[in-house]
Amino acid sequence: MSLSFEGLSLTLRGRKILKEVSGRFQQGRVTVILGANGAGKSSLLSCLVGLREPQSGEVKLGDRTLLSMDSRERGRLIGLLPQRPDIHWNVDVKTIVGLGRLPHAGRWGMSAADHEAVLKAMAATDCNDLADRKAMRLSGGEQGRVLLARVLAGEPQWLLADEPLASLDPAHQFDVLDRLKSYAKTGNGVIVVLHDLTQAARVADDIMILKEGSILAAGRCEDVMTAEVLGEAYGVEVQITTSDAGEPLVVPVRRL
């Protein structure tokens, strides 16, 4: 089931954030959205999950318009890890992760399948040792892993994440990217907003680059992730090389 958008325009506080943008994402692939601050990345994600209604255009899941679905159905199909997510309830971590099953839970509460999904999500995000700790007492990086586990517990067909690497140490950054890649390989769609160009090059199958509310470039990572395109998007000179291990390195050198 593809996730597509056509002719999206969004104006906030008198500023046009998205300018009649159109695109399509495919399941089984990781798409990374790049762009300078204020390019419209987070606003696009908000429209893709139905949190913001654009002034024009529409978002579709398959052949159905997203806003024609009720919130429970959308919650089963699309999971969102927002930018700077907050935990407001001082309950244990396992309870927080279990909230990801709410769109699936029946009238009598969580089933055995729901509990199994929670345990699987916690293991995938290295949260097992946090299960009984109070969520509000965790570090920012630990909270980030817990909230990713909450999204994964919902087993959505589409996982959207806005800056999921924020507050994570380097080891857990690699863990999260590996988990997102694995999630896509099982046939789900993954869309991620990142600022780290090297990490984007390592995880992305596809890249979409926004500039001032428009799509500057979109396509396969190897076709879009070029010094010329990145220079235009960010206003910096970029060098693209590879590490001794053969991994891409994308290094901003200077302002243009």
Rank of each mutant, 00 (worst) to 15 (best):
R107H: 04
S2P: 14
E232Q: 15
G35T: 07
V250S: 06
P156I: 00
R76F: 07
M122T: 09
Y234Q: 05
R145Y: 02
L152W: 01
E6G: 05
D244K: 13
R202A: 12
R76I: 02
G35P: 03
D114T: 05
A245K: 09
M69F: 09
Y234L: 06
R133M: 12
L138R: 06
I240W: 03
L160T: 00
R101H: 09
I215C: 06
R179F: 00
S43G: 07
V238F: 11
D132F: 10
S182W: 07
L80A: 11
T95M: 08
V146P: 01
K185R: 15
L230H: 06
V97W: 07
L180S: 08
Y234W: 07
I207N: 09
V192K: 03
A245H: 11
T241N: 12
A36P: 02
V190I: 08
K185Y: 01
V151Q: 12
G100F: 02
D129V: 11
A204S: 15
R29C: 12
D92Q: 15
E73M: 10
G14R: 07
V192G: 08
G79V: 02
V59Y: 01
P252T: 08
G246K: 06
M208V: 15
M69T: 00
G189Y: 02
T31I: 05
V146G: 01
V238C: 07
S46D: 10
A124G: 08
A161G: 04
T65E: 13
R64T: 11
S167M: 13
R107A: 14
E228G: 02
A117R: 10
D162E: 04
A135F: 04
L45A: 03
K41T: 06
P248E: 06
A113K: 15
L45I: 11
W89E: 13
R29N: 10
G35C: 07
S42I: 07
F174S: 12
V30T: 14
K120N: 14
F25A: 08
N128M: 15
H88I: 07
R84N: 15
L165V: 05
G140Y: 07
K185L: 13
D223L: 04
R133I: 08
A117C: 11
M122R: 10
A121P: 05
P85D: 09
L216Q: 12
G57H: 08
G235M: 11
R145C: 03
I209D: 06
L249F: 06
V21G: 05
P156D: 03
D114R: 06
R107E: 03
L119P: 00
M110G: 11
E232S: 10
E6H: 13
Q143H: 11
P156M: 03
H104C: 05
V251H: 10
P103L: 01
L180G: 06
V229Y: 00
R72F: 00
V151M: 12
D244L: 15
P54Y: 09
T11F: 01
S4K: 04
A149I: 02
V224L: 08
R76N: 03
H88N: 14
T241V: 12
L66K: 00
T31L: 00
